[in-house]
Deep mutational scan, measured.
Amino acid sequence: MAMNGTITTWFKDKGFGFIKDENGDNRYFHVIKVANPDLIKKDAAVTFEPTTNNKGLSAYAVKVVPL
């Protein structure tokens, strides 16, 4: 089920960042999981599918909501 969130941290040079989800949890995401990576920036609103990996909470099918 899709969730909403906000990008809180973005490491462009490393290709990953973190999203604060609607429950207040931080989720890892990688640029290859983003549909529109050219719009990635700190504080951008996103929708995504929540999941977990071996390191904890993460996100896939991430879409940055255009302003």
Rank of each mutant, 00 (worst) to 15 (best):
V62P: 01
K42M: 09
V46W: 01
L57C: 05
A61F: 09
M3Q: 04
D21K: 01
V46Q: 00
T8C: 09
N54R: 12
V31E: 08
L39I: 07
L67F: 12
E22V: 08
T8F: 07
V64M: 04
T51L: 11
N26I: 15
H30V: 07
A45R: 13
V65T: 10
W10G: 00
M1F: 11
T47C: 08
G17H: 01
N53W: 10
N54A: 14
T6V: 14
I7T: 00
T51C: 13
V46D: 02
V65C: 10
A45M: 12
F48T: 00
A44L: 06
K63D: 05
A61C: 11
A45S: 11
L57F: 07
K42L: 12
M1P: 13
N23K: 11
S58Y: 08
T52V: 13
A44C: 09
A2R: 15
A59L: 03
V64P: 03
G17L: 02
F18P: 00
V62G: 01
T9C: 12
D13L: 11
G56K: 09
I19F: 03
T52Y: 12
V34E: 03
D25V: 08
P66H: 11
K63R: 12
I40D: 00
F11S: 05
V46I: 05
A44H: 04
V65H: 12
V46S: 02
F16S: 03
N36W: 05
F48H: 00
V34Q: 03
I19D: 01
F18E: 03
K12H: 09
A59H: 02
G15E: 05
T8K: 10
V31W: 10
G24S: 05
P50Q: 03
L67Q: 13
M3V: 06
N53E: 07
F29W: 02
T8D: 06
K41H: 11
N36L: 04
F11A: 03
G56A: 06
E49R: 15
A61G: 10
A44M: 09
M3S: 05
A2D: 08
P66S: 12
D43K: 08
E49D: 06
F48M: 02
I19L: 08
A59V: 08
G24A: 04
M1S: 15
W10F: 11
I7Y: 01
K33E: 15
D25Q: 11
N53G: 13
T47W: 08
E22C: 09
N54H: 13
L39A: 11
M3N: 04
N36P: 02
L57M: 09
G24H: 04
K42V: 15
T51F: 14
T6K: 10
L57W: 03
K41W: 07
Y28D: 01
L57P: 07
D38E: 14
F16R: 02
T47V: 12
H30L: 08
V65M: 12
E22M: 08
S58V: 11
D38K: 11
A2N: 10
V62Q: 01
N4H: 15
K12L: 07
Y60F: 13
D38M: 09
F29S: 01
G24F: 04
F16I: 05
V46M: 02
I19K: 00
S58A: 14
A45L: 14
I40L: 12
G15A: 05
F18R: 03
Y28E: 03
T47H: 07
T52K: 13
K14Q: 09
T52W: 13
F11T: 03
V34W: 03
T47R: 09
A59P: 01
L67V: 13
I19G: 00
N53Q: 07
L67C: 12
A61T: 05
N4K: 14
V65S: 08
T51W: 14
K41N: 07
A2M: 13
K63N: 10
V65F: 11
F16D: 02
H30Y: 06
L57I: 05
L57E: 04
D38V: 08
V34I: 04
A2W: 12
V62A: 01
G17Y: 02
H30C: 08
P50S: 04
K20S: 07
V31P: 03
Y60V: 15
T47L: 09
V62R: 00
Y28P: 02
K14P: 05
F11Q: 04
N4G: 09
D13T: 11
P37A: 07
P50G: 05
V46F: 01
P50A: 07
L67K: 12
D38P: 07
G17Q: 02
F16Y: 14
D25C: 10
V62Y: 01
T52G: 11
T6L: 08
K14S: 07
T6G: 02
V65N: 11
K20M: 11
N26Y: 15
L57D: 04
L39F: 11
T6I: 14
T51M: 13
P37S: 06
E49H: 15
T51G: 12
L57Y: 07
D21M: 02
I7H: 00
T9K: 14
K55A: 09
A35P: 04
E22T: 09
F11R: 05
N26A: 09
N53I: 07
A35N: 10
I32R: 15
E22A: 09
K63H: 12
P66Q: 13
T52H: 12
N4V: 10
T52D: 07
F29D: 01
A59Q: 01
V46C: 09
V62F: 02
A2V: 14
H30Q: 08
G24L: 04
G15Y: 05
Y28H: 07
S58F: 08
A59G: 03
F18S: 04
W10D: 00
A44R: 08
K41L: 07
K14G: 06
V31D: 05
V46N: 01
D43V: 03
F16C: 05
V62N: 01
V34R: 03
L67W: 13
N4Q: 12
F29Q: 00
K55C: 11
K55R: 13
Y60E: 15
H30D: 11
K63I: 13
I32T: 15
I32W: 13
G15H: 07
T8S: 10
E22R: 06
K41R: 13
T51S: 13
N4L: 09
V62L: 04
A44Y: 05
A45H: 14
N23Q: 07
M3G: 03
A59N: 01
K33G: 14
I32K: 15
T9D: 09
K42H: 08
D21G: 04
A44F: 05
G5W: 02
G17E: 00
V46A: 02
F16L: 03
F16G: 01
A45Q: 13
P66D: 13
F18V: 06
P66N: 12
D13Q: 11
G5A: 03
N23M: 10
R27S: 00
K20C: 11
L67E: 13
K33Y: 15
I32Y: 14
N53S: 11
K41C: 10
N53P: 04
T8A: 09
N26F: 15
K55L: 10
G15W: 05
T9M: 15
M3H: 06
M1V: 13
M1A: 13
D25P: 02
G15M: 07
I7L: 03
W10H: 02
T9H: 15
G15N: 08
K33D: 15
K55D: 07
D13A: 11
F48S: 01
R27A: 02
